[in-house]
Design a protein around this nucleic acid. Structure first.
Lengths: 190, 190
DNA sequence: AATTGTATACCTACATGTAGATAGATGTCA
DNA sequence: TGACATCTATCTACATGTAGGTATACAATT
C-alpha cells in the first residue's frame, strides 16, 4: 500500500527537481533525501534514470492534456482559451523557480536518453496542435487576427510562452511572464 | 606563445559544449579531450568552473554587442535591423545542435554560480535594450506596428527568439527557427 | 658569457565526493 | 509461504579540484 504513495512521491519530487534544475542536475540521491527512501528503492520502481524521465514526461503530458481538453470544452472564444492556456502554464511555473517540464527538457535535449527525448518532442507537438486549433477557431470566428498560417502562429505563440518563462526566471521577475504572455494574446485580438 | 592559443581553444571548446549540452553536462575532461591538454592545465587558466563560465559569457556578450552595434550603424529601417538580428542568432545556432549561450544558461539558471548567473542576466538585458531601441525607431518611422510598449514588445520578441531556438532543436528542424523568427518580424511590419 | 632568478604553461598523481546502478539480505503482510 | 517493498553494502565511472614537479624562456646579476 506504501507503493503508490512512494511512487507518487518520487514522481512529485523528481518533477520539481527537473523543473528547477534540469535533467542533468538532479540525482537519485536528491530524490531519496526528499522522499525519505534509499536510492536503491528508487531504482526498484524506476530501474534507470531514463525510465524515471519517461514516466515524468508522460504524467505531465497527461495532466496538461486533461486541462487543455477542459479549456476547449468550456467553449470560450479563442482569446479566452489562449488566456486560459497562459493561466495553466503560470500555475505550472509556481513561485519557486520552476519552468515548464517540457521547456527544461527541451533545453537538455541533446543529453537526454532517446526515450525521454521522444516523449518531450511528442508533448510539445501536442501543445502546438491544440494551439493551432484555437488559432483556426479564432480566425474563423473573427476574434483573432494574424498574417501567418494557424500552424505557424501556434508554434510562434508556444515559443513565446516557453521563452518567456526562461527570461522571467532569469530576470528574477516571475510576474513578468504573465504580463508578457497575456500581452501576446492581446496583440492578436481583433 | 602557446598561451593565447590554448586559452582561446579552451574557450571555443567550452562554449560549444555549453551551447550543446548546458553548464551541468560538460566537464573539464570534455574540454581537455577536445583541446589536447590535461584537465589540470584548464584549472591553471580558469581556476574554477565558475571562472570559466564567466569568461565564456563575457566573451560571447562582447561578440554579440559588436555585431549589434554594426547592425545599428548600417542604418537600415527597423524591420531590416530585426531581420539582421535574426540572422545573427541563426549564425550562432549552427547546424550542430547549438543554442544561444544565454538561452542555455538561462535554462540552467538556478544551478549556476552566482557570478555566472549575473553575467547571463546582464547579457539578456543588453539584447532587450537593443531591441527596445529598434522597436522605438520602428514606431517613430512608421515601419513597425504594435500595441504594447516598445520595451514589452522587445522582451516578447526576445522570448520568441530564445523559445524558437529551443523548439526548433527539439523538433529536429533547425530551419524552422528562421521561418519562425522571420515570420515574427513580418507580423509586425506595417 | 655564464649564472641565477622568476614567471608561464604545462604535466602526473591523487584526494574527495557524487552518480547511476546492482546484489543480496530483511521485513512485512495477505 | 511468498510477493512486494525496502534496506545495507558495494561497484565503477566520473567530476572538480589540489599538490607538487618539470620544461622553457626571458631577465637581471656577476
Amino acid at each position: 500500500m506504501e507503493e503508490k504513495d512512494t511512487v507518487q512521491n518520487i514522481l512529485d519530487s523528481a518533477q520539481a527537481l527537473v523543473q528547477r534544475r534540469g535533467y542533468n542536475a538532479f540525482s537519485y540521491k536528491d530524490v531519496s533525501l526528499e522522499v525519505g527512501v534509499r536510492g536503491a528503492s528508487i531504482h526498484y520502481h524506476f530501474p534507470t534514470k531514463a525510465d524515471l524521465g519517461v514516466a515524468l514526461v508522460r504524467r505531465y503530458r497527461n495532466y496538461v492534456e486533461v486541462q487543455l481538453k477542459r479549456i476547449r470544452e468550456q467553449g470560450g472564444d479563442a482569446p479566452e482559451q489562449l488566456r486560459q492556456f497562459v493561466k495553466l502554464y503560470q500555475s505550472v511555473v509556481t513561485e519557486d523557480g520552476r519552468l515548464c517540464l517540457n521547456c527544461m527538457l527541451a533545453a537538455d535535449f541533446p543529453t537526454l536518453p532517446e526515450s525521454v527525448a521522444a516523449e518531450v518532442r511528442y508533448s510539445l507537438e501536442c501543445n502546438a496542435v491544440w494551439l493551432e486549433r484555437v488559432f483556426a477557431q479564432g480566425s474563423a470566428e473573427g476574434t483573432l487576427q494574424f498574417r501567418r498560417s494557424a500552424s505557424e502562429e501556434a508554434h510562434a505563440f508556444l515559443a513565446g510562452i516557453e521563452g518567456g518563462m526562461l527570461l522571467a526566471r532569469a530576470y528574477g521577475t516571475p510576474r513578468a511572464f504573465e504580463t508578457l504572455a497575456l500581452g501576446a494574446v492581446m496583440a492578436l485580438e481583433v
